[in-house]
Design a protein around this nucleic acid. Structure first.
Lengths: 164, 164
DNA sequence: CTCAGATAGTTGAAGTCTCAACTTGTGGTT
DNA sequence: AACCACAAGTTGAGACTTCAACTATCTGAG
């Protein structure tokens, strides 16, 4: 395969791909910046809070956080340490498995999430969802689901991130 | 605005948004990993090489690189320094403006780009372009162009990244 | 039961990005 | 000519991520 001639993209493919890259870059930077400016959390930290808030006892094992966000365990350790220092998360020994660590959202984390969620969802609407019609979004959803399916099929380790 | 009730996303919007986030995360990680493993460059470094290769004399001012990639000048300084150390880029004083610095792709950079471009385009096809039909991609392109347009209109500093 | 191998999580060093301060050079004003 | 606001780049410190090594615990084959 790698010896074969490269199959370049045609003009419209190239243009759609470029629109995707540029739009995604701008969008993610913007959503991250809005959360940082208004609430002092990054998009990644916000997403950890969301996952905790959706879990029983507002608690998740470190490994579950890592898997659901497709982050390394090490990265989660560092990030959660910072969030713990900031009072958003509390760590405790996991019941049943002495190796395990439970991360639990504190009340302060919950309070912050309420405010940040408003900012985030408003941003997602303003910069993304409200900008095109439903059919186009449905098409985008189909494409991106196909992308995930292909990558998961090829690399089963990715299975965790898909949730539900 | 920030006092108003949050307008949450409905089910299908949430599902399309989630598909977009998950698919994008997996896709970018994969494209980056493929380039690193096969050629030892990150996706960001690769994109700098692409921009240089498309420029007259294979040369660009530092600021132009920064603008076209929506990176800070500082970041470009650091990245180009690394790439210079790796022999992919050469720096020289810009003609006409003594403050300026020209970054020029070396022959080694060009050679690397030839190989890396094959890997990259093949990956983009395999993991993205070849996975859905043209109409869905066109819709995705429309949506992402609308996203860029909205963000640029709101924050004109972003104008640079859009190119063409 | 026991031990090898896997799993959970942490640690610290090295790499990368951000942010603010700084240097140098430019261009317009007076 | 002297000044001053601004632009181009760099620098170094601090923040965040990656990577490999490490500790502790669990599990299952024998």
């Amino acid at each position: 395969m790698s010896a074969a001639e490269t199959q370049w993209l045609d003009e419209s493919q190239q243009s759609d791909w470029r629109a995707y890259i540029v739009g995604t870059t701008l969008l993610m930077d913007t959503l991250d910046r809005e959360l940082r400016q208004e609430h002092g959390v990054s998009l990644g930290e916000y997403e950890i809070l969301v996952r905790l808030s959706e879990s029983p006892e507002r608690t998740l094992r470190m490994a579950q956080i890592a898997e659901s966000m497709q982050h390394s365990r090490s990265r989660v350790t560092h990030t959660v340490s910072r969030m713990e220092k900031a009072g958003l998360i509390r760590r405790s020994a996991a019941a049943g498995d002495k190796r395990g660590v439970d991360a639990t959202m504190t009340d302060a984390g919950w309070e912050l999430l309420q405010l940040a969620a408003h900012t985030h969802v408003t941003g997602v609407r303003r910069h993304f969802v409200d900008l095109a019609d439903r059919d186009d979004f449905a098409a985008l959803g189909r494409v991106m689901n196909a992308v995930s399916d292909q990558l998961v099929a090829e690399h089963p380790d990715f299975d965790d991130i898909r949730g539900h």
